[in-house]
Design a protein around this nucleic acid. Structure first.
Lengths: 233, 233
DNA sequence: CGCACCCATTATGTATACATTAATGCATTC
DNA sequence: GAATGCATTAATGTATACATAATGGGTGCG
């Protein structure tokens, strides 16, 4: 899980049931359709998805490696909840890796087309914010950060970051509805600063701004969780 | 995945065949007993290990997620070889994460016992070097760096780093025999500097020295591979 | 009334059987 | 002689059957 699995790669595509099962369980976990902290038996999952236990097991192993599920010997799988301490751990990894991705992108130089792609995300964010559509705002935000790690050219780094995001996904979307506004204009401003730094090829600046951006993000998340006495999510 | 699976955690331990199978295949890969780039069928692995295909498959999925194996639809699993470009990718992740681990350890403050544990590794390295036992030197080196990430307190970060190490393990041991000496005194010196910085609680210094240390490590690895025209390992 | 032990139940771990799909080789035709 | 198509083979993907081990409850004894 480590690490780091080829989720990014676009293969010729072989559609086997296990991939489908994996995706469906993953979606249920990310969307809280399977409640954090709850447990469910392999057999129940198999029945729920209309397949046998075999593909379920294999999908579950993958999800376990990704840190989304825990395998409790006689009690099925447990959807791992994210506590504030987990949040800190995960953000610590993100804060170490994402600025480096921005740095790499700045160093290798982004094409106008790639920069444009990032700008479009910012425009979508501004737009969504104006109409108070926070879900759309979050989606565009995700796409921006996703874009940077993927454009960094380091696939392993990108895979790790993506996996971290999966783990905090629930929390991000949950807090969306709780906090008034996520310092949104400030956030978008920083995004533009990052794009500018990358355009200038200023790796140091890109990295620094990114780090500040994530630092603030962590604080906001933790604040919301503390304020609302949410210990797990 | 990303990677990052609970490899660190010490559970009550349940010894099931799949764990054993996983360990044995992993060992064969790390020790190059299964050659990098070679392919082997699930069935062959099963026969080789004296079990059925089921536990083999499950172990293979884990190893695939860790980036050690690749699953080629009709041609079994392939032991993924590490090229120079992979080396750079992996070290990039390490260079982002390990200094942060040292930083965290410096920030929280290491106990005398913990610091002693790290020093013992350095002493073992010095000792091994004096007797020209490079394998032992490498082992002690690994234990030092392992110690730091594990003492950092961030289990996810530690798991990711451990996984990266697995991926470069072969290369590290291979180059051991090719280069004269890995700037060994310099290397040990830096280790002590890192320990000192942690002892002082100087997070910045610990991080910086560590980064330099790894930067040099990457260069050495790449140099050796280039010099000997090793494209994959 | 409480604790401990034993048995039944059940979930998982493992093996095996079966179906599906892809690759290879051979034959036939152009 | 080469290329294409079909058939055979073989490996994986999936299901199912079976063995094992743990859990929970019930009963009996202290």
């Amino acid at each position: 899980m480590a690490q780091a699995k080829p989720k990014t790669e676009a293969k010729p595509v072989r559609r086997s049931a296990i991939d489908g099962v994996y995706e469906r369980i993953r979606k249920k976990v990310l969307d809280s359709e399977l409640a954090p902290g709850s447990q469910i038996l392999e057999h129940e999952l198999a029945v729920m998805l209309g397949v046998s236990r075999t593909p379920v097991r294999e999908a579950v192993i993958r999800l376990h490696n990704e840190g989304l599920l825990e395998i409790i010997p006689r009690h099925g799988v447990r959807i791992v909840p994210i506590a504030v301490s987990d949040m800190r751990e995960i953000y610590d990894v993100l804060i170490s890796l994402e600025p480096r991705a921005a740095e790499l992108l700045a160093l290798r130089g982004a094409s106008p087309k790639e920069l444009r792609q990032l700008e479009v995300c910012c425009e979508r964010m501004t737009d969504a914010l104006a109409r108070d559509e926070m879900e759309e705002w979050a989606l565009a935000d995700e796409e921006f950060h996703l874009g940077i790690v993927q454009l960094s050219g380091n696939r392993r780094l990108a895979d790790i970051v993506l996996n971290c995001w999966d783990q905090v996904h629930r929390a991000r979307y949950f807090t969306l509805r709780l906090r008034k506004h996520p310092h949104p204009s400030k956030s978008i401003e920083e995004h533009y600063e990052i794009i500018e730094a990358i355009r200038r090829g200023d790796a140091k600046a890109a990295s620094d701004i990114y780090r500040r951006h994530r630092d603030r993000g962590l604080k906001e998340q933790v604040d919301v969780m503390m304020t609302f006495r949410i210990h797990q999510i």
